[in-house]
Write a protein that binds this DNA or RNA. Structure first.
Lengths: 305, 305
DNA sequence: GACCTTCCATGCCTGAAACGTATGGACGCG
DNA sequence: CGCGTCCATACGTTTCAGGCATGGAAGGTC
């Protein structure tokens, strides 16, 4: 009689991929676990939802008819939670700004101070998320606005690009390249194990890793991590190198770490983003503050993608 | 990010009763467990849903705003599951008839055989439920039609009273009343421990127990049970007596059990019931079969309550 | 036709969470 | 000022989702 929305998400994912294996990868669960959850659900509703015939999976009539309800419930709950979280923040006079690592760098701090002096009653609450988490945080109502690092999934969001930052590479202080060069080329990093994360989609990881490289080769992959601190720990320990932003080179100085500018890869584009739908006046005011500051400093002002 | 519809039902129940204790009773969970679940939910959505101020519970603004979504999701899922179950039964050419204990007695069996000969391709599947479970089974799509023992919660259902049955009492074969009387009065049972169940609502239990008694007294309560078999085991063991129907006196004969007619209490009314909304032609045909047979034998034909 | 790959299901173990019982603590009432 | 009511917390138990290892069936290849 009862279901968890998690199970409904599983069901929708399998229905969309028509594959347990691929759905399990997308959902970050093991394939056996997913199989069992679907079996449980089928048992609960008293009908098979999928026909598994060897290497092909397809929906049964029951599976087709239940699917819209599953999507509806998942979306309904998502939206309801988002609204409650947003309303609660508004009630507490909070403006929650999501970001990753250094966010928009100096622009973020300038925006925060400018906004605070213009709206003295409001507390601006910076909220740090794991790699690729800022955009989801907006969709889940965990932040009111965010500095999103592109590329990112912007569905359900408005976004304006407000800054770009050159990319740098972090090396262990003892790394040969640190001594040899003031700036490096992406091809200098050909054989270096590069950090990656499973928190962000593949597209995001590939963009950061410059995959494929200009010569068509693939990067060598190093350890996985969820956020800046973990990443830099690995780098300082000499297990890998990582790409980051110019701001990160300034913010995360560390005796065992050396930053070098990478000259021949495209810079990071940073957008200020906020969710679709009714947004409070504070969000609009913050976005305007950011875009105003960005324009003053010659940053591009771009329409949403 | 995820919720179980169970938790949403808990939330709705607390919101309706504005009391954790009473909601817990209605939900058949302990009050501490309910408190924990609500806390979890509040933590999940990031806002208090209730204000607990000593002996009074009331909704917060967040609680008010989340409530419609919670109701919507619970109902949505209920309905979706009901439709899938019903469609699956139709696909398998099944007509599932819910009942409790002996259902409508001889009328039920006559209806079944008549229906089966008129619809040879259809399998009629009798489905036995625990006390008070027939009506819920209809709402949950676990049966297509049912013989419902009144009083019952008929919300969401159509119902027609098709039979009445005199009530009898079951006694251990060794019970003094069994030897002394051919029929008994409800007041003869004043001091006998009477069976009861927590599967059915209080109103149902009270009606069966004739509570209050004609003289205003309350029954003496004996052990709890979920269905006929459990009930009669207790009675045969001499732990209690129980009220039942005339059919039960005929169906559940047992060397250690004696049945006696109770002369001075109102008979059981039995309705054939089916869910609101689109129903297949089979359901309608079955209902017509039953009402036709009931009319042939002089049973009342009554509109829904 | 035998082999191999692919993909879902099953068995087994582990960790988290939901439940119940017992108990604490705050408020209202007599 | 005790007493009852009602929600929260503590603790032990059971249930269940998750991962890993493995089985078994379907389809493709040589």
């Amino acid at each position: 009689m009862d279901v968890d929305t998690r199970v409904l998400r599983y069901y929708v994912a399998v229905a969309e991929h028509l594959s347990f294996t691929r759905a399990a990868q997308e959902l970050f669960v093991s394939q056996p676990s997913l199989s069992r959850q679907i079996q449980r659900l089928e048992n609960e509703v008293g009908a098979a939802l999928f026909v598994r015939t060897g290497r092909r999976v397809r929906l049964t009539a029951a599976g087709e008819s239940l699917l819209p309800a599953a999507r509806r419930i998942v979306d309904d709950w998502r939206q309801a939670v988002r609204e409650v979280r947003t309303a609660e923040a508004a009630r507490r006079k909070l403006l929650r700004i999501g970001f990753v690592a250094t966010g928009a760098g100096p622009l973020g701090r300038r925006a925060r101070t400018a906004f605070t002096s213009a709206h003295p009653g409001i507390t601006v609450e910076p909220k740090r998320f794991d790699w690729g988490g800022e955009a989801d945080a907006l969709r889940q109502g965990l932040a009111d606005a965010a500095f999103v690092w592109l590329p990112a999934d912007l569905s359900g969001l408005h976004a304006r690009v407000v800054a770009t930052e050159a990319r740098w590479v972090a090396l262990a202080a003892t790394h040969p390249l640190a001594a040899a060069r003031d700036t490096v080329s992406i091809m200098d990093l050909r054989d270096e194990p590069l950090m990656w994360t499973r928190k962000a989609p593949q597209e995001w990881v590939d963009w950061w890793a410059v995959n494929p490289r200009p010569d068509g080769s693939a990067p060598r992959w190093g350890p996985e991590n969820d956020n800046v601190e973990e990443m830099l720990e690995h780098v300082a320990a000499g297990n890998a190198v990582c790409l980051g932003t110019e701001s990160m080179a300034g913010y995360y100085t560390h005796p065992e770490l050396t930053w070098r500018r990478v000259t021949d890869i495209e810079p990071l584009r940073i957008a200020v983003a906020w969710p679709h739908g009714r947004t409070g006046p504070l969000v609009r005011a913050f976005v305007d503050t950011v875009t105003g500051l960005a324009a003053d400093h010659g940053e591009p002002r771009v329409s949403p993608a």
